[in-house]
């Protein structure tokens, strides 16, 4: 996770602020291949290489793919304040949150993006 926060007072009346957070988050299940049991009774046919064998398929190498997770999130805010006088300040900002889902799980592709624009005035008293 990287984050940066910056505040710039450009003039007595104008200031800018910026915040950014970049996060990568991964969860993975290492692939593994289960050894074939060595004590299977003779009457139980095992042939893991045989696709049509109903008695066993001990190749588990793929199961990590089912539940691996890989998200990348970028959050950013940029804003400006304009001081009307000692008490009143106008503000405007834009906030972007972006999520990239590179390993789809049971919830489908969670990739999404939200942009929010805000403006208003703050008065101190």
């Amino acid at each position: 996770m990287f984050f940066v926060n910056a505040n710039l007072t450009a003039s007595p009346k104008v200031s800018f602020f910026m915040e950014g957070v970049y996060t990568t988050a991964k969860g993975s299940f290492d692939p593994f291949d289960l050894p074939l049991p060595d004590d299977i009774p003779a009457d139980v046919a095992i042939s893991p290489d045989h696709v049509g064998d109903s008695k066993g398929a001990y190749d588990f190498t793929g199961i990590g793919d089912y539940s691996d997770l890989d998200y990348t999130t970028l959050e950013g805010t940029f804003g400006v304040n304009y001081k009307l006088d000692q008490r009143a300040t106008l503000y405007g900002s834009v906030n972007v949150v972006d999520l990239q889902d590179d390993q789809t799980y049971v919830y489908g592709d969670l990739t999404g993006n939200i942009v929010t624009y805000a403006t208003g005035m703050t008065v101190g008293f």
């Binding site: 969670l110 999404g112 929010t116 005035m121």
Partner: peptide
């Protein structure tokens, strides 16, 4: 503070 905001999304907004 009095103001307003407007949001919009693309793709899947549920998790983000």
């Amino acid at each position: 503070t009095a103001g307003a905001h407007i949001s919009d999304s693309t793709d899947n907004p549920v998790r983000v």
